[in-house]
Design a protein around this nucleic acid. Structure first.
Lengths: 249, 249
DNA sequence: GAAAATTTGTTCGTATGTATC
DNA sequence: CGATACATACGAACAAATTTT
């Protein structure tokens, strides 16, 4: 059927072709997007002013509608923020994990990735994060972990609230790893499964979980990497076994 | 405001006020985006037809420009594909890691995440992926790993090509973990650092790396989880130490 | 291979809602 | 409160790309 395929040949074999960057698309708005994107990665900071739509239209020599196409795309990618009214216009956006979470969710949905795979991925990463936290957590980061534990302790009788603070504990540990890339990915994974969680922990189960959390925290504070990793590994493994459908704490 | 479009307020019923999704924005196009997004997560598949811009404009009772705003956003999020010409229009997109990679890159840039953090995250995840691969890799997945090794063996004299196939080895191991969430994230991390890598491995260094890759492969084939994890852990640790600026192999 | 039909890409003009001063 | 600045939204039209005839 497709004897001849003229155009964007995607050679999977040629590894050098991977360098290949599509600077030029069939749309004018893609040029605009590309240029602003380049400027972004070349040092623009949150809050930096980019101009109004009309200004940009003049500067790029295109109509306002074309600029709008570009703006909507840049906005969806989390690069710019748009405000109406006087002193409105385009500015470089602030970081927003939501963008990243959404992108991950969309792609995993398209790939047909299962719920349990997301959990499994989280379970794989968390012990490593715990070990990293034990190695290098700052006082401030430890404080956040401690807060999450304290709050969940107050909420042992409220399954929903307890689950929420348990989740915060895990995210705080990831943050304490000191690696923001890891942290961002764990937030994405945890957030994705949150809507599917049904908190049904009984109080004694909550207390048991709380105890493990406290032990993990102690290991991190003590700087015991192996212990932190092992405890977290057992923890997520158990949780997964006990709650095959809602395995996050 | 438009009295016409008051309908689609979707109450996420009940208790979960924390689930709290902003169904209602100040833009009409956000309503459209939200509805199509909901439909997407409720079972639309790659290739499914959504209609033309004009059709959608009629169906939603808005102008074509408003639909275009929505379309650009949905496209940027990787949800739809747009094609011009007869039988063109909107379709549900195929999965494209590129979207996810871009979103991660944008967010990490905004967060000011350093290059070494990205590498460190990768180094944290890979040993776990290797262990998982040892547990459950399929024949087809192992084949891909073997191919990457064979290709890199052929390229020991060509630093650039060798680096590329070494990277493919690592990605193939991640795929062999059987967890597509983990796989997707490692692709993103590896791709992000690729532009900054400077392949400068000498031939004997390449041969040494190759030997380790082969050992890891053997451990995976043998189903030896601990060995696979340990070998990979040592490997990434060494690589990071030897090439502090270009530490990926 | 050429012409026709379809559909997005792009432009201009205009009106309206909204935030700032 | 009024004036100003700006994005949001509508309508009509033509250009360019792609498939079908």
């Amino acid at each position: 059927m497709l004897a001849v395929q003229v155009g964007p040949l995607k050679e999977e074999d040629d590894v050098d072709a991977a360098q290949w960057k599509p600077v030029r698309g069939s749309r004018v708005s893609e040029d605009v997007i590309h240029q602003i994107r380049e400027a972004f990665f070349n040092g623009l900071q949150t809050g930096d002013w980019l101009g109004t739509e009309t200004e940009l239209a003049e500067r790029f020599g295109v109509s306002r509608i074309t600029i709008r196409d570009a703006v909507r795309t840049l906005e969806a990618r989390g690069i710019v923020d748009v405000k109406v009214g006087a002193r409105g216009g385009l500015r470089i956006a602030a970081s927003d994990p939501e963008r990243f979470i959404d992108a991950l969710a969309v792609q995993l949905h398209l790939m047909g990735v299962t719920f349990s795979e997301v959990i499994e991925a989280q379970c794989a990463i968390e012990p490593v994060a715990a070990a990293m936290a034990a190695r290098q957590a700052t006082a401030e980061q430890l404080e956040k972990v401690a807060t999450a534990i304290a709050k969940s302790e107050e909420a042992v009788g409220d399954p929903k609230l307890f689950t929420e603070w348990s989740l915060q504990f895990h995210i705080a540990v990831a943050e304490a790893s000191g690696n923001r890339a890891l942290h961002a990915m764990l937030i994405a994974l945890a957030t994705m499964q949150k809507p599917k969680m049904s908190p049904r922990a009984s109080e004694w189960r909550a207390r048991r979980v709380l105890k493990v959390h406290q032990e993990i925290y102690a290991a991190i504070v003590a700087g015991d990497e192996d212990k932190a990793r092992t405890l977290m590994d057992d923890h997520v493994r158990n949780v997964r076994k006990e709650h095959p459908e809602a395995p996050l704490l």
